[in-house]
């Protein structure tokens, strides 16, 4: 930990020329516990490295062979596409739902509440299967006036293929969770901000877009990072409707060659790589929305200063 050399305290009280204070000479506090911890960790670390290198069960050759193989990269691509698209649906849907939930319009607020209740309250697997088998319920989907003429009509199975069913299932479910995260963020912004914007003649929409939402982002971003990283792995549920992504690809391979551990390591390496990239990205986004506020510890703290200084 750094010594408390806060700029504000150090700024005013500089040394006066000629009367330089004599620094205290004292024996610093000893920390034997730290040394013991270092030794214990060093031993445990050495054991870990030893077993990873010498245990043939890891089959690092198999890991290397499959890490960049076609099926694995295909699965990886699907994982990425599903994560990005369903998080986009989730974030924008969540913002819309949160604004509706907080709206003075009781109908909008109630509808948003109902949506959140329904989509948070039922299992994601059930929702994925539901979207996939929508055709069983409605063989044709059409736009028209109830009890009146139809304008356009689609075959449900053509409109909703496996991929769209995945997106609908993951995205619409995520929107319900994001809605509560966004609502928390919006409500964390001081009411005085809304009043000040209102007193300047800004409309409700302008106040939300320009004043409240940018400040709420500071609170919204960290849990959204959580949700994104969680989504990365939740996408593996799409196997229930016969779609595939990283985890499914890996499972297909080891069900044939029985190299379960090495292939799980392949999957773990990719998930860890993606999670690391996302964490760094989160650090940048947090810096962006932390402008004008005291910079607390963020993910970006783990990076060297020069990496993130440009993101300010």
């Amino acid at each position: 930990m750094a010594a408390p050399t806060d700029d504000t305290t150090a700024g005013g009280a500089g040394p006066i020329p000629g009367t330089a204070p004599t620094p205290i000479k004292a024996v610093p506090v000893r920390h034997p516990g730290r040394w013991i911890a270092i030794v214990v960790l060093a031993v445990l670390g050495a054991m870990l490295v030893n077993t990873i290198l010498t245990n043939d069960g890891f089959r690092w050759d198999v890991v290397g062979k499959y890490l960049f193989s076609g099926p694995v990269l295909n699965g990886l691509r699907n994982t990425l596409v599903l994560t990005v698209l369903s998080m986009l649906i989730g974030i924008f849907g969540g913002i819309a739902l949160a604004v509706m939930r907080l709206s003075p319009n009781p109908v909008l607020s109630y509808v948003a509440g109902l949506y959140i209740w329904l989509f948070r309250g039922t299992p994601l697997i059930a929702q994925l299967l539901f979207w996939n088998f929508l055709a069983a319920l409605y063989p044709r989907l059409s736009l028209g006036i109830p009890f009146g003429p139809e304008f356009v009509s689609f075959d449900t199975n053509q409109l909703i293929n496996q991929f769209t069913a995945c997106l609908l299932g993951l995205g619409l479910n995520e929107a319900a969770y994001m809605a509560e995260i966004v609502r928390g963020g919006l409500q964390s912004v001081d009411h005085g901000q809304t009043e000040a914007a209102g007193a300047l003649g800004m409309s409700r929409g302008q106040t939300l877009r320009r004043i409240v939402l940018p400040q709420a982002m500071r609170v919204i971003v960290p849990p959204t990072g959580n949700e994104t990283i969680s989504m990365l792995k939740t996408t593996s549920l799409v196997v229930v409707i016969g779609y595939f992504e990283l985890m499914t690809s890996v499972q297909r391979i080891y069900s044939v060659n029985f190299q379960t551990i090495p292939l799980l390591i392949v999957a773990a390496i990719w998930y860890l790589a993606l999670t690391s990239v996302l964490s760094i990205g989160q650090g940048f986004v947090e810096r962006r929305y932390g402008r004008g506020v005291h910079q607390g510890p963020t993910g970006a703290r783990l990076l060297p200063k020069r990496w993130t200084a440009g993101a300010k």
Partner: peptide, 8 residues
């Protein structure tokens, strides 16, 4: 309490 916009 001023109510300036802290992010600007």
């Amino acid at each position: 309490r001023f109510n300036l916009f802290p992010h600007k």
